[in-house]
Amino acid sequence: MKNLCKKYLGIISIGLGLVIFYVLLTDVFNVLSDFLFPSLGQVISLIPDYIGQLLEGLVSSLGLLVTSYVLAVLCGVSLGTLVGLKAGLRKNLNPYITAFSAIPVPLLTPYAINIFPTFRLASIFLIWLGAFWVILGTTVGAVQSIDKRYLENAATLELPPVTRLFRVILPAASPTILVGCSVALNLSFMMLAVAEMFGASSGMAFFIQYYSDFARFDLVMLGFLFVAAVLVTIMCLFDLLKARILHWTLNN
């Protein structure tokens, strides 16, 4: 525990600094309008009453996020590997991958709502799409630029396709693929917020949107803090997973 505190001393002190700064600006010197920037004490006192709603929102948001993101990773990595390995496919598909990934996914919202029977499916599609293009693009690049010597090494061992894929190609490409996955994770947070703003009836971003319509900025602030905590947790988990997969690289 003591070690843990020591390791995160920097992070903890910056956090405390931010809290003190906010308290100084609001409660102590009243620099900020207390309507838009409620005092922290007030925000915290709201937790017991609203924690139920927040948790419900969390479950709903995570449902959307995890489903879409996992699907995006599966589709992106498998298709990307296929395209990356086949020079012919790559040559013919690359312009289209680039072109489609250039379309800002939020602009597709009206299409998604019209095409899919439910808002939830439309949301999943939009979040999926946002993450998918990035993962697809980086995976194609990653697989294509695998050091030829690893592939030759695999060839002299006559590794069969499946072994070659899982023991050579994916590990060799994993550092780059994971960069894509982390960009895609950030994008899917953003798309989650977009998606929840149009059709959701619960969710973390919905919570913020809903109470900001009523000008309840104390609750908006509570929502922000809650979302921030969730995002930080997810990012930490992602980094743990990443460090585990990339344990063999120099950077870890």
């Binding site: 090494n153 060839a155 006559e158």
Partner: peptide
């Protein structure tokens, strides 16, 4: 025709996969 297990190659470097 193609590489084979009958012909074991010792590469100067890159002889081992670094991820295992």
């Amino acid at each position: 025709e193609k590489p084979s297990l009958d012909r074991a190659m010792v590469f100067q470097d890159y002889g081992l996969f670094p991820w295992m």
